[in-house]
Design a protein around this nucleic acid. Structure first.
Lengths: 207, 207
DNA sequence: AGTTTTTTCGCCCATATGGGTGAAATCGGA
DNA sequence: TCCGATTTCACCCATATGGGCGAAAAAACT
């Protein structure tokens, strides 16, 4: 397992060291500690980490939330806020940049590590999942009569733009069989063609 | 601001009460406390909350991670794990269900509240951000030869599952004209049918 | 004004798809 | 072991779609 590089943005050296210690004792590598905005941006640019832990209240021109905004606009990285502030206004502002987590000091080391792992994992999952896969349960949940396994399989391939012949090849059945499955699936989906089936699947997936 | 309903799934009454107290003192309403899997599923079905906080180690047939899996498959809700366990195996299993957060006991009340707010906010943002309409510029940016206005218009209708005849009616032209636009669009999109055009459009939109 | 691009329309043909009927083989639960 | 659901396959027909060729009108650009 390759160690994941984490950048810490925290203006209090004692706390930064403390966080650093937790990370180093786990499966993470602290790629750098930035005490202010300049160093943070410098580190992000020249030693891009896999994730960031950042304080909100920094002793610099721009605060942590603004740095987070910068990360969103220029990088593809998960980040966690680790701060003493959890008042309404701060939280409201933090929401906008969609942090992977928000931990309030004093923090539980285990919570920090677990949150970081989950954040990185979720982030990776989401990037890989660009093309939203059809989900059997999710589709069937909205149908009066659910699709059978085979019907769903066929729908999946239609969703990916395959022709009936390609589907037949891929499933090792004749095109006749494919057509039967499609016809039955259309009845359940209220579709009338490959295209409408794709549209219906899209609709059913996004509820 | 309407109060958000949160379901607590936790087998230790003392801790459940403790969590409950934190939530009630903030802008949340505890919609129920489930001490086991059965009650959890019952609550989810009959008194569906806006978010869930759940322990992993429950004194029941299925554990919190399995309940989370159930939530993913049957509902569209953000959930946070709140547990004493943060060992590698548990975390590894938890990653799979993609929790919005993972807090380790003993927990910091502020962290719990902030994590919950962020989780709900992120979740809402993500649901709204789905189903992008086709965007002319965005599609053309990725094509060597860009689509013309009319070609794009036709693609849009195909993307919505319309047949050539429907498209012709909607645009007040003959089906011959529609077919020409489609043929030209296919060349540029590298598509060979309505279905593949939809797939290609989907791909081009999400980069 | 002249040129290019876009939009419009027609015709023809081959193939793909949608829809109907019938039926055998397989599988899983009652 | 029997029954219902599922999966498999065949044949037929009407329509939709994909693709080729040609061409005129309109719009945009120079």
């Amino acid at each position: 397992m390759s160690e994941l590089k984490v950048l810490i943005i925290e203006d209090e050296p004692v706390i930064a060291e403390n966080i650093s210690m937790y990370l180093n004792n786990a499966d993470f590598k602290v790629s750098g500690i930035a005490y202010d905005d300049e160093e943070a941006i410098n580190q992000l640019r020249n030693n891009t980490p896999d994730a960031v832990i950042l304080d909100i209240n920094l002793d610099s021109a721009i605060d942590g939330i603004q740095i987070a905004d910068f990360i969103n606009k220029n990088f593809q990285l998960p980040f966690l806020f680790l701060t003493s502030y959890s008042d309404k206004e701060t939280l409201q502002r933090a929401k906008v940049v969609e942090p992977s987590g928000y931990i309030v000091k004093p923090f539980n080391g285990q919570t920090l590590l677990a949150s970081l792992e989950i954040a990185i994992s979720n982030f990776a999952n989401r990037s890989n999942r660009q093309v939203p896969e059809l989900n059997f349960e999710k589709i069937n949940k909205h149908l009066r009569t659910p699709l059978t396994d085979r019907e769903f399989k066929v729908l999946q391939l239609i969703y990916r733009g395959k022709t009936n012949n390609q589907i037949a090849e891929e499933l090792f059945v004749t095109i006749n069989t494919v057509k039967v499955h499609i016809r039955n699936a259309y009845l359940k989906l209220d579709a009338t063609s490959h295209s409408t089936a794709i549209v219906r699947a899209r609709e059913l997936m996004q509820r």
